[in-house]
Amino acid sequence: MFFTPFLTIAQYLYNIDPIAFPSFIPGGTQTTGLVDLLALDNSGKKFIALERSFSLGAL
Rank of each mutant, 00 (worst) to 15 (best):
D41V: 02
S23K: 05
I25Q: 10
G57A: 01
G28V: 00
P5Y: 05
S55Q: 07
G44S: 10
F24V: 14
G27C: 06
F2I: 09
S53K: 02
P5H: 02
L7P: 05
P26G: 08
T32Y: 01
L7N: 10
A20R: 03
T8Y: 08
V35Q: 09
Q11K: 07
D41L: 01
I48W: 09
N15V: 13
I16H: 05
F6P: 14
I9Y: 13
N42R: 02
Y14Q: 12
T4Q: 15
I9L: 11
G57Y: 00
S43K: 02
F21M: 13
I48M: 13
A49G: 09
L50K: 11
F21S: 12
A58D: 10
I9G: 09
P22Q: 01
I19A: 00
I19C: 00
T29Q: 12
S55E: 03
I19K: 00
R52G: 03
F47P: 13
T8L: 12
T31G: 06
P5N: 04
A58T: 06
L56C: 04
D17F: 01
D41H: 00
A20Q: 05
Q30S: 04
F47N: 10
L13A: 10
P18F: 01
N15S: 13
S53W: 00
G27I: 03
F3Y: 15
I9R: 11
A49P: 03
R52Q: 09
T31R: 08
P18V: 01
A20H: 02
F3W: 14
S53D: 07
G27F: 06
F21V: 15
I9F: 13
A10I: 04
K45F: 06
D17G: 04
S23P: 01
L50S: 11
G33T: 02
P22K: 03
F2Q: 09
L59A: 15
G27K: 03
L37F: 13
Q30R: 01
F21C: 09
P26W: 07
L34R: 04
E51Y: 11
L56F: 14
G44A: 08
P5Q: 07
L38S: 14
I48V: 15
F2L: 13
D17T: 03
K45L: 14
I25C: 06
D41Q: 02
F2P: 15
P5F: 02
A39E: 09
T8G: 10
A58R: 06
S55Y: 02
F54V: 11
T31Y: 07
A10D: 14
A58L: 06
I48A: 14
Y12K: 10
L34T: 04
N42T: 04
N15R: 13
